[in-house]
Amino acid sequence: MPEPTIESAGPLLQLSVDRVVDDATTDTRIAVLSRTDVPTEHLMIWVGASEGEAIRRALDVSVTPRPMSHDLIKNFGDHLGITMTQVVLTDVKNNTYFATVYVQSNGVTRTIDARPSDAIALALRCHAPIYVTQDVWKRRSGQNLEAWLSKVESKNFGTQEV
């Protein structure tokens, strides 16, 4: 199979989800993704608390007694025979990332506009690959956030001292 591309803007870069970090000051979460081919290079996306927890549950493969929202979407796919083929982070404007979810049913591929948080939470459950365009990768914020992030994480660990 050829590498997936979007409007010949160069091959897409595949990402994997490393972890979800708490941003305790704003009650949001940070999804930390890294390039599959260069795992030391990261992309960070701020997501809502509930969406961040949905991503975290998928990473931990933890099962809830009742299906949560993204489990339900996966169950729709399983029941109706819809396959999620990929997620692509297509754009970033004012630090807001845009994602497109690709689904396939009866041999036809369709695309759905989504927030990256929903797209990632669903992709992890459906074992679908996550890609980013080269353009978005170049324009990503937080290329120097590694140091900042490690500070946030150590601060979270140290909250009991306060």
Partner: peptide, 12 residues
């Protein structure tokens, strides 16, 4: 999330 859920069903 539920708008996306609806869009997912609409898409097919």
């Amino acid at each position: 999330t539920h708008d996306f859920m609806k869009a997912y069903l609409d898409a097919v």
